[in-house]
């Protein structure tokens, strides 16, 4: 593990040139949370862009302001995003988000973590 960081909403670390991002269980993402998440992630990245594996299972809810912020700024310094989804609820939330937000970098949803990693390796 090259780098590791944790705030009240998520944990994230860089390993093998991939940034792993995991929301904590039960978090509700509002605008302040979204800004904090982007800020902490960018600071950890130290100017370098990474492909990101994002596990959203922990998200319980979010508001529009947060979703809009993440749609616009969530992908700064990312090369591609593989979203890992296991629960029904997360799947629906992520489909809604992607439909509205029009991702700016290649973004794909996976139920299988290994497949998500395989997708991201092409961007390392």
């Amino acid at each position: 593990m090259e780098d590791y960081f944790e705030n009240e909403f998520a944990l994230f670390w860089i390993s093998g040139n991939i940034l792993f991002f995991e929301y904590k269980p039960g978090v509700v993402i509002n605008l302040v949370a979204a800004q904090r998440i982007v800020m902490d992630r960018m600071q950890m990245q130290k100017e370098k862009a990474y492909p990101v594996l994002c596990d959203v299972s922990g998200i319980a809810d979010s508001d529009k302001a947060a979703r809009d912020y993440l749609a616009q700024h969530g992908s700064v310094l990312t090369k591609a995003v593989g979203i890992v989804v296991q629960r029904t609820l997360s799947m629906v939330m992520i489909s809604f988000y992607l439909k509205i937000s029009k991702p700016q970098v290649p973004t794909k949803v996976f139920s299988d973590r290994a497949k998500a990693l395989a997708f991201l390796r092409a961007f390392v």
Binding site: V38, M39, M42, Q43, Q45, K46, E47, Q72, H73, V76, L77
Partner: peptide, 15 residues
């Protein structure tokens, strides 16, 4: 939009 992204990069990176 580009300026907003630049603002983020200035704030949180050392580029």
């Amino acid at each position: 939009e580009r300026l907003k992204r630049a603002q983020l990069l200035i704030q949180y990176t050392r580029i």
